[in-house]
């Protein structure tokens, strides 16, 4: 696995520690870390939108937002406290820089679809277990059938789905017309290449970012 030496990336563990006050980090926040970093460091343009649907374990998200100057680093202290705008699920009303308030699973992909219908380039991050929620599949089917090329879904696959996805979760999206690609969710080069905008695309894309099993 290629870990870049960007100072910003190296600063993330310390920022996460500042959030949790604990050297030991829960794995759900870590599963998204590299995808989030590559998105904010190399992929997202000013006009692009990012919908974090999987709002569980948002410490990696807050750490990346802080590293990128989208939220003040001081906010990381007091994570989850009454006075803090940073909760265990992000709230776009409380935190400028957060584009979608999430926590309940299965909401982001539909909202991302609505945003993408306007022609906006939209990235939406979901989890492989989150995809158990049926509401996701309404969006998967619709976006696939209408060829919503401005939409990119990223599935963090840490094999946490309760009953598994036979032959890989991406197979279901491909059946509905999505372009699918599975990459190493820790490899920044692979992630950046897969997530780069595809101006000639005619279909929605799903990037399955595989990380260590939960």
């Amino acid at each position: 696995m290629a870990i870049t030496t960007t100072p910003g990336y190296d600063a993330l563990p310390a920022l996460i520690t500042r959030l949790t006050g604990d050297e030991k980090h829960d794995r759900s926040s870590f599963s998204t870390l590299d995808v989030l970093w590559v998105l904010y460091d190399r992929v997202l343009g000013e006009e692009d939108r990012f919908v974090l649907s999987k709002g569980h374990g948002p410490t990696a998200y807050y750490a990346v937002l802080a590293a990128k100057g989208l939220i003040p680093t001081e906010l990381l202290d007091g994570f989850g406290d009454f006075e803090s705008p940073l909760g265990h699920h992000p709230d776009r009303v409380l935190v400028p820089g957060v584009e979608f308030s999430s926590g309940s699973l299965g909401h982001g992909l539909a909202v991302a679809t609505g945003r993408a219908l306007t022609g906006r380039r939209v990235y939406c991050l979901v989890g492989d277990a989150e995809l158990e929620e049926g509401s996701n599949w309404e969006a998967v089917q619709y976006a696939g059938r209408i060829g919503l090329a401005s939409l990119t879904a990223i599935v963090i696959d840490n094999d946490s789905s309760s009953h598994g996805w036979q032959e890989g979760v991406e197979r279901r999206l491909m059946l509905e017309g999505w372009v699918a690609r599975r990459v190493d969710g820790r490899d920044h080069e692979q992630l950046a290449a897969a997530l780069a905008p595809d101006a000639d695309g005619t279909r929605p894309r799903v990037i399955v970012a595989e990380v260590e099993p939960r």
């Binding site: 909401h107 539909a110 909202v111 991302a112 219908l117 509401s135």
Partner: peptide, 20 residues
């Protein structure tokens, strides 16, 4: 936008459009 018989998506899409 007719999203088919998908009412959860209908409201999610409406929210996405409002956000834009």
């Amino acid at each position: 936008f007719d999203v088919g018989i998908r009412e959860q998506l209908m409201i999610g899409v409406a929210a996405g459009l409002a956000a834009e």
